[in-house]
Simulated assay, not measured.
Amino acid sequence: MGINFDELKNKATEALRDNSDKIEQGLDKAAGFAKSKTSGHDSKIDGGVEKAKDFLGKLAGTDKPDEDQQPPQPPQQ
């Protein structure tokens, strides 16, 4: 009897999808707390939060492509 990692991954992914709004609220709260305890790092904290929110959006299938982001180029041969 081993651990079924695919099943575990699927359950975790489903939980993230179902609770992405609550997770985003938690990220905002954590960012606010971190900003209140540090100074001069607001842009780095905001950047980390945005990356986490982008990941959640991709996972949930609700991400919106950035208008200024270029599509990836195929590798040169």
Rank of each mutant, 00 (worst) to 15 (best):
D21T: 08
T62V: 09
K64E: 15
T13N: 09
N4H: 01
Q77Y: 12
N10L: 09
P75W: 07
Q69G: 01
K11V: 03
Q25K: 15
A31C: 05
D54P: 01
A12F: 07
K64T: 13
K35V: 03
M1T: 11
K9Y: 08
E24N: 15
D21M: 09
I23F: 10
T13P: 01
G40T: 10
P72T: 05
K44M: 07
F5S: 11
S39V: 10
M1R: 12
S43Q: 13
D42Y: 00
E7P: 03
I3E: 08
P74R: 07
D68G: 09
Q70N: 09
P71R: 11
D18M: 13
P71G: 08
D54K: 15
D63S: 15
E14T: 08
L8S: 03
M1P: 08
A12I: 07
G2F: 06
G40I: 06
E24W: 02
F55K: 14
E67K: 15
P74Y: 11
D6G: 11
K53C: 04
K58Y: 06
G61C: 07
N10G: 03
F55V: 13
N19I: 05
E50H: 09
G26W: 05
Q70G: 06
M1C: 12
L27R: 06
L59F: 04
F33S: 07
I45P: 02
G26C: 09
D6S: 01
Q70Y: 12
K29R: 14
Q76W: 08
D63L: 05
L27S: 07
K44S: 12
K53Y: 07
G2S: 13
K37Q: 10
L56F: 03
A31K: 04
F33V: 12
T38D: 02
S36W: 04
G61F: 04
Q73E: 14
T38A: 08
T62F: 05
D68F: 05
S36H: 05
G32Y: 06
G2N: 06
L56I: 00
Q25C: 03
K37W: 01
T62R: 11
K29L: 13
D46I: 01
A30M: 12
K53M: 10
Q73D: 13
T13G: 05
E50R: 15
E50W: 00
D28W: 09
G61I: 04
E67C: 07
A34P: 00
F33N: 04
A34N: 03
A34W: 02
Q69F: 10
A15K: 09
D21S: 14
T62Y: 02
P72A: 14
A60W: 02
D28V: 08
A60V: 04
K53L: 02
D46A: 14
I23W: 06
P74A: 12
I45D: 03
A60E: 13
Q77G: 14
L8V: 11
E24A: 12
Q77V: 14
K29H: 10
K37S: 05
Q25S: 15
E50N: 15
G47D: 06
R17M: 13
D66V: 00
D42A: 12
E7H: 04
G40W: 03
G57L: 02
G48C: 07
D21E: 14
P65W: 05
S20K: 15
P71C: 07
G32V: 00
D46P: 03
E67P: 06
I23C: 10
